[in-house]
Design a protein around this nucleic acid. Structure first.
Length: 582
RNA sequence: GCCCGCUUGGUGUAGAGGUUAUCAUGCAGGAUUGUCAUUCCUGCGACCCGGGUUCAAUUCCCGGAGCGGGCGCCA
């Protein structure tokens, strides 16, 4: 071993011990007659000391050659500090250096390796291995590790078995674009990387595996966002002989356990909200319920009073912002500009201030009496001192816009406290969604989702009205997981495929293996998949998932450190029977 | 595919149609008797690329590239 102790463990109780430490030079503080070196490793920082009284001149001049991030090993003795530093755990002791070995020199790093670095994202990504030496990144990776271990412990205690599923599988038409891998041995044919192990976990249920889980990479070839990576990690689970409530209970238990162990938050039952109620109340299928500001429909009180803009629209709605009457005209105008951005797409915004004296001041006073506005306030549960923000337009679109506005206003007001955790289940999703310009349905969740058992007959008569046995787990406005009870009946599955626009041959060639499996005694089953990267970030109170991934990709799907993706040699292309068009 | 923003020493930044291009940090050299983001002195080091407007462009305009954010997309 190159070391007897790490740089994070030595304390007063180790005084006078002879130790060997190894690590990176964080910083040298050279006072001339005495110099200190902060020696850093994963576990902490220990101060080394050399001075003219206690060390020979050769040793001191050797120490003066050290640069940032040199890798060194020292032999020395633990001594009491003359001036203690209470800010760090090792601050009461230091190590008097007797022998110094430079294990490796280091070039000057391109950015400072401090908690608050001066490096931009681009540079930090290119030198990710240096960034990982910094506490913020190191701690996030270790936090991820801790959460993974808790999850494994919890699921193992509930008899879940971790089973690996293949990465080289087959491309399927539904869902996201696939990443594909050419097969050398089968010219002109391709594997696809899994978007999730969905069909395999169902086959494990048919295989009698009963309770399965896997912390597993999934791949989707879609454009990225701050919180979206082309390869990401799911906690993938499936259970046999269960109903929806059984699955919700297990994974509610898992999240409760995590909140308890990580934040000491006492577990309570998670609210359950139907998809329809989530949209109506929050304008989102992943509502942030850490604060109120519930949406209210205003058609009855706002239409038919001569205000053409509202009268012509399908739906008028709004919500009250507590204390918002104090907003200046300028602030209100900036929100109006905000909702008019193309990303939101509202035509405008009407506001009503509920004054402390009980009167109302609005941007549409010309059209509405005080009594009219009082009715708005009542519908929105607005109190004196609040402001009501109102949008109008198509019903679905306006709900979404109000939902976005609600989040943005809450963010501005500091209501999205990352230390508060408000989980809930959203249930009762429609089974299908209709896409404009498409003559067949799309699966809202995925094609294997079971309809509500009482509605199976409606698949023929009115498929659009059928609800799914599907559920999403929401935490602080983030969808951290989703799942469903699956179809385990061949005939129902065939019907769904046909509604999704597959003919018999297509269904057979794409999913024949699954349909075949259903011939041989498939148990009732269902499951859930949690987005592990996002779960970890949200549990740690952060927005971006990037820092929780050791080697993430940038916005264009590039790994700037290894410079991937990259072209292939012609030889390699030939071997794969491929020709590049680029 | 589309929209918005950014690009100045190694790093992070300021700035203006004509400057010796600002500051901090870093790095190099020197000083420093208890530091801990050590302090002080001296020095080093930069306007993303292409085209246009202009007497003059790093600055204004157009295009591109890179990066970031978003829309579409992500069952």
């Amino acid at each position: 071993m190159h070391r007897s102790h790490t740089c994070g463990v030595l304390r007063q109780t180790d005084l006078n011990k002879d130790v060997i430490l190894a690590g990176w030079v964080q910083r040298v503080r050279d006072k001339g007659f005495v110099l200190w070196i902060d020696l850093r490793d994963r576990y902490g920082v220990t101060q080394l000391v050399l001075d003219e009284e206690r060390c020979d001149a050769a040793l001191i001049s050797q120490a003066k050659t050290l640069g940032r991030e040199f890798v060194i090993q020292v032999h020395g003795r633990v001594i009491q500090r003359e001036a203690k530093n209470t800010a760090i755990p090792t601050g009461e002791i230091e190590v008097l250096v007797k022998k110094l070995s430079i294990l490796n020199t280091a070039e000057v790093p391109p950015f400072t390796l401090e908690d608050e670095t001066d490096g931009g994202d681009d540079l930090r990504m290119k030198y990710r291995y240096l960034d990982i030496r910094r506490n913020p990144i190191k701690d996030k990776l270790l936090f991820r590790n801790k959460v993974a271990q808790m999850i494994r412990n919890f699921l193992a205690s509930q008899d879940f078995a971790e089973v690996e599923t293949p990465y080289l599988i087959k491309s399927t038409p539904e869902g996201a674009r696939d990443f594909v891998v050419p097969s050398r041995m089968n010219p002109g044919q391709f594997y696809a990387l899994p978007q999730s192990p969905q069909t395999f976990k169902q086959l494990l249920m048919v295989g009698g595996m009963d309770r399965y889980y896997q912390i597993v990479k999934c791949f989707r070839d879609e454009d990225l966002r701050a919180d979206r990576q082309p390869e990401f990690t799911q906690i993938d689970c499936e259970m046999a002989f269960v109903e929806q409530d059984d699955i919700l209970a297990v994974f509610e238990g898992l999240l409760q356990q995590l909140l308890q162990d990580i934040h000491g938050i006492k577990p309570t039952a998670f609210p359950r909200l139907s998809y329809a109620d989530a949209i109506a109340t929050y304008g989102s299928d992943k509502p942030d319920i850490r604060f109120g500001m519930y949406l209210a429909g205003l058609n009855e009180v706002a239409q038919g009073k001569g205000f053409q803009v509202f009268d012509q629209q399908e739906w008028v709605g709004g919500f009250a912002v507590e204390g918002g009457a104090a907003m200046s005209r300028k602030e209100i105008d900036s929100w109006i500009d905000w909702v008019k951005r193309p990303q939101i797409g509202a035509k405008g915004m009407v506001w009503v201030k509920c004054n402390e004296d009980g009167s109302y001041k609005s941007s549409v006073d010309k059209f509405y009496s005080q009594e009219d506005l009082a009715a708005w306030a009542s519908a929105c549960h607005a109190k004196k001192g609040d402001i009501i923000l109102v949008l109008s337009g198509g019903k679905a679109q306006t709900h979404t816009q109000l939902g976005e506005l609600r989040l943005a206003v809450a963010e501005k007001m500091g209501l999205r406290d990352p230390k508060v955790f408000a989980p809930l289940w959203v249930v009762d999703f429609p089974l299908f969604e209709q896409v404009e310009g498409d003559d067949h349905f799309h699966a809202m969740h995925h094609p294997f989702t079971a309809p509500k058992p009482t509605q199976v007959a409606q698949l023929d008569s009115s498929p659009a009205s059928v609800y799914a046995n599907a559920y999403d787990l929401i935490l602080n406005g983030n969808e951290i997981g989703g799942g469903s009870i699956r179809i385990h009946d061949r005939e129902v599955q065939e019907k769904i495929f046909s509604l999704l626009g597959f003919n018999k041959q297509e269904a057979e060639s794409q999913f024949g293996f699954l349909m075949d499996a259903f011939r041989y005694g498939a148990p009732p089953h269902g499951g859930i998949a949690l987005g592990f990267d996002r779960l970890v970030a949200v549990l740690d109170g952060q927005e971006s998932i990037r820092d929780y991934i050791a080697f993430p990709k940038n916005n264009s799907g590039r790994d700037v450190m290894i410079d991937a993706p990259a072209p292939l040699d012609d030889d390699q292309l030939d071997e794969l029977s491929l020709q590049s068009k680029a």
